[in-house]
Write a protein that binds this DNA or RNA. Structure first.
Length: 769
DNA sequence: GCGGACTGCTTACCT
DNA sequence: ACAGGTAAGCAGTCCGCG
């Protein structure tokens, strides 16, 4: 019984050895594999023998064999080119590709340790009750003014917490009061040493941090270098290694996977901001102890009793929160690592496209399918100008309020289409089939041989059905939640497959496939709409795979739902087996504003809002919560007068300057580098101003700003909330550009607008209220 | 010189 | 750095206007 945490390789005496880092029920073991050799494939241009001779003549090639493999066009013979060292692969692949006897090389860009995991079908992260992983969270505090600089600003505290129950703050100033978790040491050097020693002694398996790839780990590494220390967190006592991974860093720790929770939180949740405290509150619904980053040095320098203690408490609470978030987020990462069969360190940093790709590569290897090459810049650009294809169909909504709405949607529409219509690059335009399986986009897919990607997808879905079955039968709550996470991971992967076909950087990119999937999707939703209308339903709205229906002939919920159920059954009988329309819910009332923007209320009074300002981070809470309240009054109580009254009172408060800044802050992501903007909106100007005051921003950061009273345009008035004092806000802006548009959008949809409300709106904008 | 109409850029959402 | 479809705000420009 063993759980693979990490894999890498070492070159000893000119031979590469794969190292596999396991946790077992009796502790840690490291296994070595010495008989696995680096290789890649070469496809002969014409003659196999000529190609073989040409490749064999190269010095670094240790052996050449032939192998039968499947390309999307069919079976083919390739050369397996073996070399002595992993670094020979990138060295040789270009040379071999350019040989006249060789058409192309394949799988020459798979890192050696990953290659091993794929080939050996090894599954990482198979933990169980007998193997409990020791997870630790780490956080540092730095003494600095402005942005921390590792060459001058020392680390003043390191906090640590692990699932074994150890909690520590190491620092080197005595707070006076004795806290159990505090250890006061001599200086920065001892603090870093304490962390390194603790991680070893505690036999930590997984190390977590929050933004630790880009802050804590590189910072500690740089400080260690300055202090002449080894920052050896590796299980084999090697230092933390910083890697470039696209735009970001990755801090690799050998044998003890390091997981940075920040990018995972951004991937998993949709929150207005992703600071540690925001994510903690978003997940657990309670706030954690917090102090301003700028105050850290103030508390550290303070002679006031209790200030240092306060800083220590903050540091401890940060790492406690990090560990709690880790326990919330890690299970999904474990399941993904298992399914994709790549190490946790890697999979936890993969985007959706990469996850699908590694899954497919692993499955391709099992089936002797040659993995297509990643597109080079040329091919990538070619795919770009291949321009867009038509996507989903969206029904123009019947705007306004509706009663007794039933919602249907197709269960996993796109995955079902891929499976039932066998949508795959290798089945596309096979030539052997007539037009029995032709997409509305005009592409024919083979019905004789099963496509690779449809078959992978089918196994994912079968596995998910199986997992759900187990989940239902399971009684142990821990195992139950693990199974639930697993079925979610399977769903995540299955749902990424369609997007992957249209992804320009994908190895299995296939525009005709993507286009065919959406064309069939439009077909199915049109079928459902046509059938529903024929049976007397009114289609209120629909998007991609869903329809919102009303049934004007009935007023009774039960009768409507019965009728809807019969409609569903008849429709499903006409559909291919994998396709299924499902009943999703009954809503007593809903209001539809435009495409992708609507709200419905459930029988239980629960509001579901889609697309409206309430859902958007780039609207002030003032406007969002007022809109939600108005929706609640309109849909729950059907009382527009009351809603109008509520808004009227709020306008007064805004005018009086009584609204706290936190209700007025607008969050907007900086999606590009600050110099790259053609048009500088409020968030960009707010960031620019802050930049002058020594603040730093990275592409991808979320800018939180207030529209203040000073400036001409709205952008001129925008200023970071951190630099703004309470009460300094432009009440006209917040009334006319935030509160009123958000609530009027709802009230106007009721046909209530033509009358006094709009007039009042205009008056309000003139300040007559 | 002003204001409305329109365009382009930008963001965040929906499925 | 998985797809396309969509609404909407802000900045800037155009256009008409004795």
């Amino acid at each position: 019984m063993k759980c693979l945490l990490d894999a890498d390789y070492q070159v000893r005496g000119e031979t590469p050895h794969i190292r596999l880092f396991y946790k077992t029920d009796r502790g840690r073991v490291t296994e070595k594999v010495s008989d696995f050799k680096p290789y890649f494939y070469a496809l002969p241009r014409t003659s196999m023998d000529d190609a073989r001779k040409a490749v064999e003549s190269l010095e670094a090639v240790t052996s050449v064999e032939t192998k039968k493999m499947f390309k999307s066009e069919g079976q083919t013979n390739v050369l397996v080119v073996c070399v002595a060292l992993p670094r020979d692969v990138p060295r040789l692949r270009g040379e071999i590709r350019s040989l006249p006897e060789i058409a192309d090389v394949f799988e020459a860009d798979v890192p050696f340790a990953r290659r091993y995991l794929i080939d050996s079908k090894t599954t990482p992260m198979q933990y169980s009750d007998k193997i409990t992983l020791n997870v630790a969270a780490v956080d540092i505090e730095v003494y600095c003014r402005g942005e921390p600089k590792s060459d001058e600003d020392p680390v003043i505290m390191i906090s640590y917490a692990d699932t074994g129950g150890l909690r520590r703050v190491w620092t080197y100033k005595n707070p006076g009061v004795k806290k159990q978790y505090v250890e006061v040491l001599e200086g920065e050097e001892q603090v870093i040493k304490a962390l390194v020693e603790t991680i070893k002694k505690r036999e930590v398996d997984v190390i977590c941090g929050y933004n630790s790839d880009n802050f804590d780990m590189p910072y500690l590494k740089e400080r260690s270098e300055i202090l002449g220390l080894d920052f050896n967190l590796g299980f084999d006592d090697t230092p933390v290694k910083m890697e470039r991974r696209g735009m970001n860093n990755g801090a690799r720790i050998t044998g003890r996977p390091h997981v940075d929770l920040y990018p995972i939180a951004r991937q998993v949740y949709n929150f207005p901001r992703y600071r540690l405290e925001d994510v903690y509150e978003g997940i657990f619904g309670t706030r954690k102890v917090d102090i301003k980053k700028d105050d850290i040095n103030v508390f550290w320098d303070s002679k006031k009793e209790g200030d240092l203690e306060c800083l220590i408490e903050y540091s401890m609470s940060d790492v406690d929160a990090t560990l709690e978030i880790a326990q919330q987020l890690l299970p999904l990462q474990y399941e993904l690592s298992k399914l994709i069969k790549q190490p946790l360190y890697e999979t936890s940093r993969m985007a959706a496209g990469q996850r699908v790709e590694y899954l497919l590569m692993q499955r391709a290897c099992e089936k002797n399918i040659l993995v297509p090459n990643r597109p080079g810049d040329e091919l990538y650009n070619e795919r770009g100008v291949d321009d867009k294809y038509e996507g989903a169909y969206v029904v123009e909504p019947r705007k306004g309020i509706h009663d007794n709405i039933v919602l249907f949607d197709f269960r996993s529409l796109y995955p079902s289409i891929i499976i039932s219509h066998n949508v795959d690059p290798s089945t596309l335009d096979c030539g052997c089939c007539q037009e029995a399986n032709k997409s509305p986009a005009g592409h024919v897919f083979c019905t004789n041989k099963k496509g690779f990607i449809p078959s992978v997808l089918k196994t994912l879905i079968n596995l998910r059905v199986e997992t759900k079955k187990q989940l239902k039968a399971e009684v142990d709550s821990g195992k139950k939640s693990q199974l639930d996470v697993r079925q979610n991971a399977l769903k995540l992967l299955a749902n990424s497959m369609y997007g992957y076909y249209g992804f320009q950087r994908a190895r299995w990119y296939c525009r005709p496939c993507a286009e065919s999937i959406t064309s069939w999707g439009r077909d199915y939703i049109h079928k459902a709409i046509k059938q529903a209308e024929a049976e007397g339903f009114t289609v209120v709205y629909g998007d991609t795979d869903s329809v919102y229906l009303t049934y004007p002939r009935e007023a009774d919920e039960k009768k409507i739902v019965d009728k809807a159920e019969r409609f569903r059954e008849t429709l499903n009988q006409e559909l291919p087996e994998a396709m299924e329309l499902e009943f999703e819910g009954f809503y007593p009332r809903g209001v539809f504003i435009t495409k992708k923007r609507y709200a419905v209320i459930g029988v239980d009074g629960k509001l579901t809002v889609k697309g409206l300002e309430t859902r958007r981070r780039d609207w002030a809470r003032l406007a969002k919560s007022a809109q939600e309240r108005v929706l609640d009054i309109i849909l729950g109580e059907k009382n527009p007068k009351k809603a109008a009254g509520y808004v009227k009172d709020l306008v007064q408060k805004v005018k009086a300057g009584d609204i706290p800044l936190e209700d007025l802050v607008i969050h907007t992501q900086m999606t590009r580098k600050i110099g790259d903007y053609v048009s500088e909106g409020p968030h960009v100007l707010a960031a620019k101003k802050a930049l002058k005051n020594g603040r730093e921003f990275r592409q991808g950061d979320i800018i939180s700003y207030i529209v203040t009273r000073r400036g001409q345009s709205i952008s001129d008035k925008a200023q970071l909330i951190d630099d703004t004092v309470e009460g300094d806000y432009d009440s006209d802006y917040y009334i006319n550009n935030q509160l009123l548009p958000a609530v009027l959008r709802i009230l106007e949809a009721l046909g209530y607008q033509e009358g006094e409300l709009k007039g009042q709106g205009k008056q309000m904008s003139l300040g007559d209220w």
